[in-house]
């Protein structure tokens, strides 16, 4: 894996990243696409919940909380 490429749940709060790949399939993949997570979409990690999961992200103008399980299947490149 390239240095700046990682699953979304690992990017630090306050950082933005660009979606490069979705590794989920079926319904969960479709759900991510419906949230606007298509390739090249810029996502910002906003804040973690007290337990660290879920994490709130800014996705195309909406704040959306994703569980680590979901976010780990979104591969991004830090920008």
């Amino acid at each position: 894996m390239k240095k700046n490429v990682m699953p979304l749940h690992l990017i630090p709060c306050g950082k933005s990243a660009k979606v490069t790949e979705l590794t989920s399939y079926g319904n969960s993949r479709r759900r991510m696409l419906d949230l606007g997570l298509i390739i090249d979409t810029i996502v910002e990690s906003l804040r973690k919940s007290p337990s660290g999961d879920p994490i709130a992200y800014e996705i195309r103008g909406a704040v959306i909380a994703l569980r680590s399980e979901e976010a780990s299947r979104i591969i991004v490149e830090l920008i």
């Binding site: 606007g36 195309r60 103008g61």
Partner: peptide
Amino acid sequence: VDATCLERNLN
């Protein structure tokens, strides 16, 4: 739809 983020609403 939300005028401030129209694109995401159009889906």
